[in-house]
Design a protein around this nucleic acid. Structure first.
Lengths: 226, 226
DNA sequence: CTGATCACTTTTGTATACAATAAGAGCAAC
DNA sequence: GTTGCTCTTATTGTATACAAAAGTGATCAG
């Protein structure tokens, strides 16, 4: 993260994700360049990337705005991630070796220890969790799948979910990882796929409950029916 | 396609896809800029896009080369497309209305007429086929899914497959579209999903047979086993 | 007061110059 | 002959200047 375009990417992304910029806010290249302390060139590059990740929306006249994510959009992102990570798990199950399983176990061990601390070490959980999922994606051996998933995963809400996990949910997550490892040990692709898909869907519901609440969710549903 | 960056994108892409540039060939920004008749700035933008589509590979020192697609890579692309278009079909089945079904029927009617000409009008087939799949993707109402699929679909081999279809395969494709419409009329998401996934997988095998031949395919397989 | 046109301002697109960095060639030491 | 070094050269990254396009607002006719 030392190149100017990376600085621009990180800075702009952070401002969008943190809420410093509200959905719908216009994003002028010049203004962003000044904020980031770089020129327009790297800012443009960063903006194209953020646009591909759907954090930025462009009007037909090529002007850029902060995208607004409805709950439906977020559900979309999780749905896609569930399917694609499920595929990754399925592919990994037929390709993983003893060494890979060993590594996964070690990541999940650290996750297990982190969540049993008082208070639970969420940052450790997040980091080891990321390593866990990334390793599976590598073992799946599909450059395309990796590219697609990374643009999804780099998105705002998805990895932050765990900050709102209850201890029960953290333990559940740990337990699912363990089950996933069992599926890998048996080379059972179908099992691995379903566990992973469920694992991600659970993350969505945890997010949804925490951020919107069941009442609000129900309100959205009925609005949709109308 | 009038902006310089679009010209650059189209030109470079065409040179890669047509084989004017061989896999592994180095891609210097300056050289490409001269070929396209534009400056380096739009060329860089085009290259980033092509890199995201995996047509271009970048070394760790940021130099670019024409990517080489093994048969495995191509199978990957089709596998992902099968899953994602399957999801699109599934989502579309629960959202489509009478008007949408009418449009799909009209596209497929034109496909049916085009393939029964002597000789079959492949260009018409390709165009209507594209419209057919694009409409389903629109009806699926997922911006993310659309973005992901479009980067996959814009890729070289995938849409060219039909140029190698036999009349039998063209008819089969027409028939599957028809079945898909039936699934939509019944709102049967699971059915729509499986037809679509099979539809794409069939396209892969048609491609694979035409370009590599069964013997070559078998050779790759045994090499992999070794 | 409404609507249209035209000039002006702002914003994006492209070209180019310059800076930083990595590859490659040539030379020296071993 | 090989290894390691430095200097040169080629390539990418960044900044800036300029061109093109789009938005904005004022003025004037109806």
């Amino acid at each position: 993260m030392s190149r100017a375009s990376d600085i621009a990417y990180g800075t702009i992304r952070e401002m969008i994700v943190s809420g410093g910029l509200a959905p719908g806010d216009p994003l002028g290249e010049e203004a962003l360049a000044e904020m980031c302390g770089v020129s327009r060139t790297p800012v443009r590059e960063a903006m194209r990337k953020l646009e591909a990740e759907l954090l930025i929306r462009r009007s037909e006249s090529q002007r850029s705005f902060v995208a607004d994510w409805s709950l439906d959009d977020i559900e979309d992102a999780f749905e896609l991630r569930a399917i694609l990570e499920g595929l990754a798990a399925s592919r990994a199950a037929t390709r993983i070796d003893a060494n890979g399983i060993e590594q996964l176990k070690s990541f999940n061990d650290r996750i297990g220890r982190a969540i049993e601390q008082k208070p639970a070490e969420i940052d450790v959980f997040l980091e080891e969790n990321r390593k866990f999922h990334t390793l599976i994606l590598d073992i799946a051996e599909s450059a395309r799948l990796k590219t697609l998933l990374q643009t999804l995963i780099e998105q705002p809400i998805i990895w932050r979910t765990a900050h709102h996990y209850s201890l029960h949910e953290l333990r559940r997550s740990y337990q699912e990882h363990d089950e996933l490892i069992s599926a890998f040990e048996r080379g059972d692709a179908a099992w691995a796929q379903t566990i992973m898909a469920g694992h991600i869907r659970r993350a969505f519901h945890a997010y949804s409950d925490a951020h919107h609440g069941l009442a609000m969710l129900e309100a959205e549903r009925s609005k949709k029916r109308a």
